[in-house]
Amino acid sequence: MVSFNGGIGTLVLDTIGHTFSQKYHNRVIQHEAGHFLIAYLLGILPKGYTLTSLDALKKEGSLNIQAGTAFVDFEFIEEVNRGKVTATMLNRFSCIALAGVATEYLLFGYAEGGLFDTNQLDALLKSLGFTQKKADSQVRWAVLNTILILRRHEKARSKLAEAMTQGKSVVVCIDIIEKSISDDDL
């Protein structure tokens, strides 16, 4: 069933997973909530999210999109296109890219999703001329920092995941984050 670059197969498998496995469905939601929360907290505005391949097909009209979170990341894209990514932007992107995996690890003890996320980060680091040792160091730094942020804002991530399950808008999701983070947490 390899047609449309595997899109139909992915759509079918993902739909079956969400329909028949509450564990799979919950894991995807938590993963995307992690990306959304970390991006927002690091100053990158989320502009949309999908939780299933079917949802992505309906919203984007493409068979080759899975669950995911999209961001207003013009500054980052501009830096990548110039070939000069600042350390601050690289650190933000690294944390956001690994946030889904880190969320799964914190909640379930291991991560099933995130291969695309880690491959995307790895490709970026290679394109920037990172050695494997330097890339490994960047990934370790990002994972540790992301886990610290996720632990600190567990309440916000939990409420965000609940809102995403209900299909709430990005604006409502951001409002939930803002209301969940107390002054003591900042």
Rank of each mutant, 00 (worst) to 15 (best):
L51V: 09
R27G: 01
C95Q: 15
S62D: 11
G83E: 07
R92G: 02
S137V: 01
K126V: 09
T131K: 00
R140G: 03
R27H: 04
V170T: 10
K58E: 13
E75M: 04
I176P: 01
I38D: 05
S158L: 10
I77P: 00
I44D: 04
I38Y: 02
G83H: 06
A111H: 09
K179Q: 15
L57P: 07
V28I: 15
S3H: 08
T118E: 12
A163E: 14
I65H: 09
I149R: 08
V28A: 06
L41M: 13
L51R: 05
T131H: 00
G34S: 06
G17P: 14
W141Y: 14
I29A: 11
A99K: 07
A70V: 09
L57Y: 11
D185S: 14
F20I: 15
D122Y: 11
I77G: 00
V172K: 11
L186G: 01
L124T: 02
L107V: 11
Q132T: 11
L51E: 02
Y49G: 06
L98Y: 03
T50W: 08
A87E: 15
D73K: 03
I149L: 15
V170C: 04
H25V: 02
E178H: 11
L63I: 01
T131E: 10
A97P: 00
S182C: 04
T103C: 10
G6Q: 10
F36W: 09
E60T: 05
A142F: 10
A33E: 04
F108D: 12
V80W: 02
N145E: 14
Y24N: 10
A102N: 03
D117I: 01
G129Q: 06
L128Y: 03
R152G: 04
R157K: 13
E162K: 15
L13K: 15
S180F: 02
L148K: 15
T86F: 06
Y49K: 05
C173G: 13
I96Q: 06
F116V: 12
E112K: 15
L124E: 01
K58D: 10
G129L: 04
V72T: 10
S53Q: 09
V170G: 03
D185A: 12
M1C: 08
R140F: 11
M1W: 05
H18Q: 14
D183A: 14
P46G: 02
H31G: 00
G61L: 09
V72E: 14
V139R: 15
V72S: 11
D55R: 07
R27T: 13
G6I: 09
C173W: 09
V101D: 04
N91K: 11
L90D: 00
K23D: 15
L11W: 06
